[in-house]
């Protein structure tokens, strides 16, 4: 291939990539602009409404009114709920899975192999199979429409135990644990001072994927929670759509409010997130 040919290929590649990037990004631009528009302007322009401002655009037609209307409806309660549910799930799931994964990886006791086998077996149980019996169980335990009923089934995922068991096997050498014990560390300090720092990348990645998983979880809160004040954003926004079906401004504003915190968190912790996503995959 000649150098000229190569250069042309490079430009074609970039042109395709830029085009695809635009296709990916346009919905965001549309979403944000839509959340600032008044109801009438939805039919006058795809993006910014025409008017007598700079570039022939009616800048004065844009406002935060939709956001005001959204918070007048009490949407901030759902935002707080989402933060609470996601943070609690991330914290407890990480602690419980790390503790279990460590013990299954490094401790010798009767029943260890059986438990490991059952945990691995549980990975193939599709969560949808547990919806109906899980609902009946929460009814029997009187936990329907409570935070406990939502959170307790979600803070001990077998998948997390599997990930932490792998992480401990890969990055915690037995000699280090023995050395710590000889130095007089109790088993508790071995776990908190020696093991946890060594699996820190997994802790970061797992906390982030659990947080996002809960933030975007729809079916669990939809089934468990009935009171509007207890619902997270995912359920609240779907109900908002049911009531205000054609209020595009309100619905787009609600989407922006729901997505922004997570996008900010991601940009902040990007590397860990991507490594967390691929951590389930086979390496090499």
């Amino acid at each position: 291939m000649s150098a000229g040919q190569r250069k042309i290929n490079k430009w074609i590649l970039h042109a395709i990539l830029v085009l695809l990037a635009i296709v990916t990004l346009v919905p965001y631009v549309w979403l944000i602009i839509a959340s600032l528009k008044g109801q009438d302007d939805f039919f006058s322009a795809i993006f910014l409404p025409p008017g007598d401002g700079a570039f022939g655009i009616g800048w004065d037609k844009l406002s935060l009114d939709n956001y005001r209307a959204l918070f007048d409806l009490g949407f901030e309660v759902n935002l707080i709920n989402s933060v609470f549910y996601s943070a609690t799930t991330a914290l407890f799931a990480t602690l419980i899975c790390a503790a279990t994964g460590f013990v299954l990886a490094k401790h010798q006791f009767r029943g260890r192999n059986l438990i490991t086998l059952v945990v691995l077996g549980a990975l193939i149980v599709p969560p949808t199979l547990l919806l109906a019996p899980g609902y009946e169980l929460l009814y029997d335990l009187n936990l329907l429409d409570t935070s406990w009923g939502l959170l307790l089934p979600l803070i001990a995922p077998a998948f997390g135990v599997f990930l932490f068991r792998q992480a401990v096997i890969q990055s915690v050498p037995d000699e280090l644990l023995e050395a710590a014990r000889i130095d007089g560390c109790s088993e508790w300090s071995v776990f908190f001072i020696v093991v946890l720092p060594l699996v820190r990348p997994m802790i970061g990645a797992f906390m982030l994927i659990t947080f996002l998983g809960m933030w975007n979880n729809f079916i669990s809160p939809q089934i468990v929670l009935q009171t509007a004040d207890k619902q997270p954003l995912s359920v609240a926004i779907a109900q908002l759509r049911g009531v205000y079906k054609t209020d595009y401004g309100l619905l787009t504003a609600a989407t922006v409010v729901s997505v922004l915190p997570v996008a900010a968190l991601f940009l902040f912790l990007q590397k860990q997130f991507i490594s967390g996503l691929t951590s389930g995959a086979v390496k090499g």
Binding site: F102, I115, V118, V119, L130, P133, E136, L137, I155, F191
Partner: peptide
């Protein structure tokens, strides 16, 4: 260390699975 996981796992995965 195993107790929290085992209790939650038995109650919210194994029991519903059997049910």
């Amino acid at each position: 260390m195993l107790a929290p996981f085992l209790v939650l796992f038995l109650v919210f995965v194994v029991y519903p699975l059997i049910q």
